[in-house]
Nucleic acid binder design. Sequence first.
DNA 1: ACTTACTTTAGAACTATTATAAACTTTAAA
DNA 2: TTTAAAGTTTATAATAGTTCTAAAGTAAGT
Lengths: 137, 137
Amino acid sequence: MKKTSILNKLRSSGLRPTKQRVEIAKFLFNRDKTFHFTVESLGKHLAKKTTTKFALATIYNTVHAFKKAGHLSEVHLRGKNNTTYFDTNISNHHHFYDSETSELIDINDNEIKFDKIPKAPNGKTIKNLEVIINLKN
Amino acid sequence: MKKTSILNKLRSSGLRPTKQRVEIAKFLFNRDKTFHFTVESLGKHLAKKTTTKFALATIYNTVHAFKKAGHLSEVHLRGKNNTTYFDTNISNHHHFYDSETSELIDINDNEIKFDKIPKAPNGKTIKNLEVIINLKN
DNA sequence: ACTTACTTTAGAACTATTATAAACTTTAAA
DNA sequence: TTTAAAGTTTATAATAGTTCTAAAGTAAGT
């Protein structure tokens, strides 16, 4: 992804392309494979790869802004470390979770097929369905 | 469940039947239907239903002891309120989650059937599989 | 350049949870 | 039954992840 398209991505989401946002966006979106991270791990990666300074609050703000804009998704998993995982894969998909390493691995939507799904209770509707497959060694 | 069987349950789990543990066990296990709770909500229920005093730490300790003994399970869901949910249903099963009400509803194992499941990566094995069906109104 | 609105920042505040250590109970042996 | 050891409860402190605050800095349009 070119720099201009990063700028467009930010601007079209109503986010001013500040130094911090551009760096974070480049780090997160200029890659082929899905990337899973926590705010803390993202901060460490940024510190290694860039010379820009990032306040922790900025990383939180930016990640939430990207999520709100639909560029990131949050994994609704309570892992053992009690931190929130984010995912650069925003398509409908599922996850393997290894609690020993706290590692997430994507599962494409087409790798899981259902034969039977219960219908939603009361007057509710199904919004989406998330599968976590827990791993052991 | 009779009082004696509550006492047996505790004793056979290596837990001394203290006043607090007995009250919590009676509250949690003397019921027909599955019960979902957070430590905070359990504390409120206990305050209403009993005259016994419970320090917050005791509720945490007891819930974890019950979980370790296999009498409770933890739902690995990061809900919007960021608290841990526990479940008196310890059989293999799944959940509906309504993020507006923060309510969990059990889905029996036999209400979901899979046609296709990916195989575990690397040298890993599948420990278990959890489905969360998110609801909306 | 100037002004306004938006952002970043450091640190305080907040919330869920775990740790600590003293007081209290349970247990089982004498 | 007393009594001592081991386990438990309690209030409070500590911790960890996250959000809030308000002051200083930056981007965008005039």
